[in-house]
Structures are given as structure tokens and as C-alpha cells.
Design a protein around this nucleic acid. Structure first.
Length: 446
DNA sequence: TCTGGGGTCCTAGGACCC
DNA sequence: TCTGGGGTCCTAGGACCC
């Protein structure tokens, strides 16, 4: 080592902060959003349905306690719904997305280092906080979100994201909605035996499938090896983990042991693929309405493309009949290039229609169609020598996007999307767009 | 009668190159 | 009888997430 002329005791080591992650997770997000605007839902079990009112996609605590499973088709539990007076809501994504924005904005006031992970979850870095202040700070975040938006949030804190997810799980059971594994782990390090840490005790009870990154399939594989809990996973043979579960499982292993491998993604990168697909409210049995539905989905995908200032060069479309029941089944897809790469709705619709013609078969009742865009690049990027980026098309789409943002989606749209749209989504009990539409504001009667 | 939608990452294997 | 070694790129498929 080079002699710097400084004696060790005079060297001021930079203070190394252990990374500290917080996971802020909204409790039963969709159900909570509905409850904000409809107090009558507050003391009843609530479930939220998928598009077309098909499956259960979200449940309040009371509904969970009744044993209503996630993802079950609603017709299978009609009986329970009636018996327990379960409130049933169609999903209102416009409302949820806006509520999510408000919550994220509120969280951002507490730290600029935030990764919006999903509609109802965010990771935050709280490195600079001392052990003592952590809980207080987290509680303040939670209270502020609750007061400003009405949505309850749980906060889990730990030195890695994977541990923070587990802490978040425990926070849901905490009366104050905060759980810090960081405190617990630090404590364990200083006070000797592992058993003194409440967190380490907890993870002996949490099934391995609850680990972030371990899904149903891997859980089965792990169970066969005698690995049932988070604790078991942490004490499994590292070589076996690396070989069998590849680099992903290995990172999870390291993260559980407190080495942070997954960093905070503060920048939202442009998406590399864009999907727009939906089941129809009613089956379609002829070409024209199918083409119209696909045109609508294509327009949606094109808008998402423009929102992130990208173009796509590859398109895949698919159509399918119902995958169950006794009716004749047919499913097919077609891939085509978009040349030159584009986000211009008319060009994309025309390409999608051509592809559809190549796979359409009459005599079937179609239930779903979709479009998948890939080969995504920043707009204006010249991919080949003689490609030309069409400024006029860009300007037209800009004008359309502005109008649709101002006056509501679909106010200006392509004729190819049709006017009847009989196949449009079924939603029997959708709440108002309380926060994004002047016509649907909450009325207060005094 | 009735069954969601939208993303990411990793690996294996083939084509192709020198 | 004998049949290299190493690299890149692309794609399909499988796993995961919300």
C-alpha cells in the first residue's frame, strides 16, 4: 500500500452508508380507491373485477378473510357475493391511475430517490436516516399519504429491495403499517444469537413462494428440495441455487443475505415492447367489426408509442376464440415489419389490417384480439441510409394527441375504428372518474 | 350465460463468421 | 478413420412481476 504520509488514525474514512430501501405499498389498492369516494363500501367486503367484469382482480381485507381467491371468475362465487353482501365494482383504471399519480407525488416529497415500481408500489432510498428516525419518518410518509389521498399504505424497510418486499409483507400486519427489517437485522448483528432478531424469526414462517422473484413453478422445485420457507432458502446450498436457479435466483439469495444487487431504477426507461389487447364484451363473428376492434387497439398502442417518443419496426397481431367451452376454437397470429419504423396511427392500422386479412377465418366467434409492438427505437432515429423521418405525420399525430388529452380520449379517432363498437367492454358497475373528469366530480348533498 | 391485461429478464440453441 | 475453437447475434420459450 502506498504511504500517503497520513497516519491511520488521522485518516477520515468517508462514512459508508449501507443502502436502505423502503417499499411503500398501497393496501388493497383498487378497493381502497373505490372506498375513498364511496364511504358505503368501508364496512363491507369489496371486490374489483377485471375488464369485461370477468374475474376478481382485487379484494378488500374483508373479502380476503372470506376466502375469495384472486383471479377467480366472478360467476363462480355469485353465491358468496349474495350471502356476505360483498360489494362488486367494475374496474376503473382511469381513477386508479390518477390516484396512483397523486400518491407517488406525495411520496416524492419525502425523497427524490424513488422508483415507481407499479401502479401501487414504489421503492425509495432512505440511506441517510438514522436507525432511530426511520420509523418516525416512515410513519409520517404513511400518514401524509393517508391524509392527502385517503389511501392506506404499508411501508417495509430493509437494506435490499428483496428484503424490503418481505418487510412490506410484515408491515401489512403491523397496526401502524410500518416494519423495519433494518433495525431488526442490525440488532441481530450486535446482540449475538440469531434468535434475538424478530425478523429472522418471522422469515422462518414465511413460505418461500412469497419471496420476490420466486413464483409458483420455482416454489414447487424448491419444495422438492426440502426448501419451504424464506429461512430455508437463505440456508440452501449456494452452488445449487446458482446452478439451478441461474443468476436471478443467485441475486435473490445475495439480497436475502443483505447484499444489495438490485438498484433503484429512478429513471423510467422507454418500454421495449407495447401490448394492447382486450377480450370483447360480446363475441365477434365477422371480419369488419374484428378489423375495427383491432384498429382501436392499434391506435392505443400507437399512442403509448408516441407518449414515450418512440417508433416501432415490428408488429404482431393475434386473434382468438374462447379457449374453453365446446364452440369451435381457432387462434392465430401474424408478424410483419413496419417499414419505415413508425408511430403514425394510420400507417400502423393499415399494416394491422393487412396482417389480419392473412389470418382471418370465417365461421368462428372471436373473443379476443391484440397487437404487440417491438423493435422499438427513439423517434427520429435513422435506421437506414435512405429512411426519412416524416415530420408532417408527427405534427398530425401531435395535434390529435393534444385534442384527445383535452377533450377526452377518442374525441378524434380513425374512421377505421368504427362507430358501433358493439363488442366494446362490458362494465356493469363502474364508479365515476371522480378525479379526472369535470362531469363526474363527486357531488356532496348537504 | 359468465374465465384480465401489460410488462421484464434469462437461457438455450441455431445461424453465421473468422 | 478422421470432424476446431471461439465469438456474436437472433429468436423462442420459460420464468417472473404487478
Amino acid at each position: 500500500m502506498k504511504n500517503t504520509g497520513l497516519k491511520e488514525k488521522h485518516t477520515q474514512r468517508p462514512k459508508l452508508h449501507r443502502p436502505l430501501f423502503a417499499l411503500a405499498d398501497c393496501n388493497n389498492f383498487y378497493a381502497s380507491c373505490e372506498r375513498v369516494f364511496n364511504p358505503k363500501l368501508r364496512d363491507r367486503p369489496v371486490v374489483i373485477l377485471s375488464s369485461n367484469d370477468g374475474c376478481i382482480v382485487a379484494r378488500s381485507n374483508e373479502a380476503k378473510a372470506l376466502g375469495i381467491p384472486m383471479g377467480i371468475p366472478v360467476f363462480k362465487i355469485r353465491h358468496e357475493i349474495a350471502r356476505h353482501r360483498i360489494a362488486v365494482c367494475s374496474s376503473n383504471y382511469t381513477l386508479y391511475a390518477d390516484m396512483s399519480n397523486r400518491i407517488m407525488k406525495t411520496l416524492r416529497l419525502f425523497t427524490p430517490h424513488i422508483e415507481i415500481y407499479s401502479i401501487d408500489e414504489a421503492f425509495l432510498r432512505l440511506d441517510s436516516l438514522t436507525e432511530r428516525d426511520l420509523r418516525r419518518y416512515a410513519s409520517k410518509m404513511r400518514d401524509t399519504v393517508m391524509r392527502w389521498t385517503g389511501v392506506p399504505v404499508s411501508i417495509g424497510i430493509a437494506p435490499t429491495k428483496t428484503l424490503a418486499k418481505l418487510a412490506g409483507l410484515l408491515a401489512k400486519r403491523d397496526p401502524l403499517g410500518v416494519y423495519s427489517a433494518a433495525e431488526s437485522l442490525m440488532h441481530a448483528n450486535t446482540s449475538g444469537p440469531e434468535t434475538s432478531s424478530s425478523f429472522l424469526n418471522e422469515i422462518k414462517k414465511i413460505p418461500v413462494s412469497k419471496i420476490w422473484g420466486i413464483g409458483r413453478r420455482l416454489a414447487v422445485t424448491l419444495n422438492m428440495q426440502g426448501i419451504y420457507t424464506v429461512y430455508d432458502y437463505m440456508h440452501a446450498d449456494p452452488k445449487w441455487i446458482r446452478r439451478k436457479l441461474t443468476i436471478t435466483g443467485w441475486r435473490t439469495f445475495m439480497e436475502l443475505h443483505g447484499t444489495s444487487c438490485l438498484s433503484l431504477q429512478e429513471l423510467t426507461l422507454p418500454r421495449q415492447s407495447i401490448i394492447s389487447s382486450q377480450s370483447f364484451g360480446e363475441p365477434i363473428d365477422s371480419f369488419i367489426p374484428l378489423k375495427e376492434a383491432l384498429a382501436l387497439y392499434t391506435a392505443r398502442a400507437a399512442r403509448k408509442l408516441r407518449e414515450q417518443h418512440s417508433t416501432a419496426s415490428l408488429m404482431q397481431i393475434y386473434i382468438t376464440t374462447k379457449p374453453f367451452g365446446s364452440a369451435p376454437r381457432y387462434a392465430n397470429s401474424a408478424i410483419g415489419t413496419i417499414d419505415p419504423p413508425s408511430s403514425y396511427t394510420p400507417a400502423l392500422i393499415s399494416r394491422a389490417s393487412t396482417l389480419l386479412e392473412s389470418i382471418y377465418r370465417s365461421g368462428f366467434r372471436y373473443k379476443k384480439a391484440g397487437i404487440f409492438l417491438t423493435g422499438i427505437h427513439p423517434e427520429g432515429m435513422q435506421m437506414r441510409l435512405f429512411d426519412r423521418y416524416d415530420v408532417r405525420e408527427r405534427q398530425i399525430m401531435q395535434a390529435v394527441d393534444v385534442l384527445n388529452r383535452k377533450w377526452g380520449r377518442g374525441i378524434v379517432r380513425s374512421a377505421a375504428e368504427g362507430t358501433l363498437q358493439r363488442w366494446h367492454m362490458k362494465q356493469s358497475s363502474v364508479s365515476s372518474r371522480f378525479t379526472t373528469s369535470w362531469d363526474e366530480l363527486l357531488h356532496i348533498v348537504l
